[in-house]
């Protein structure tokens, strides 16, 4: 991907990528660290802009680190959302029909096939 193409992606998609990188990291990240964690080539200034915008919206909190800030996602205080979501999942076996899930349950055979496919492919 070229930098020009990544810069032209919708702002919402860039915000999503930045938030995902922060959650995946699990520790506060500086704009430079976020930039390194992203698969796309975004300019540092773009990453900084996205981070401060998400901070203003209340999605991220930040702390001073050196001359700049390190950002991390604001957590759900009691994990209520997860509890609620999983409670719903366990009760409702039909969920797959309304919500298009990324992946479904696997049979043991499926698992074996997938492991082989992953091993064969380049990593």
């Amino acid at each position: 991907m070229t930098e020009a193409r990544d810069e032209r992606r919708p702002a919402g998609e860039l915000e999503a990528a930045v938030l995902a990188a922060l959650w995946a990291a699990g520790t506060p990240l500086t704009p430079a660290q976020v930039q390194a964690e992203l698969s796309s080539d975004l300019a540092r200034t773009t990453v900084t802009t996205i981070l401060s915008r998400l901070h203003e919206k209340g999605t991220l909190e930040r702390e001073r680190q050196g001359r700049g800030f390190a950002y991390r996602p604001i957590e759900d205080p009691h994990g209520l959302t997860a509890l609620r979501m999983h409670g719903e999942l366990d009760r409702d076996s039909d969920r797959a029909t309304v919500l298009a899930r990324f992946v479904d349950r696997l049979s043991p055979d499926d698992e074996e096939v997938l492991r082989q496919l992953l091993e064969d492919g380049p990593r």
Partner: peptide, 15 residues
């Protein structure tokens, strides 16, 4: 953030 909603949970899921 954008269209993404992250739920803090130890169970992998996406939809």
């Amino acid at each position: 953030a954008g269209d993404l909603c992250v739920i803090d949970s130890p169970r992998p899921d996406a939809y």
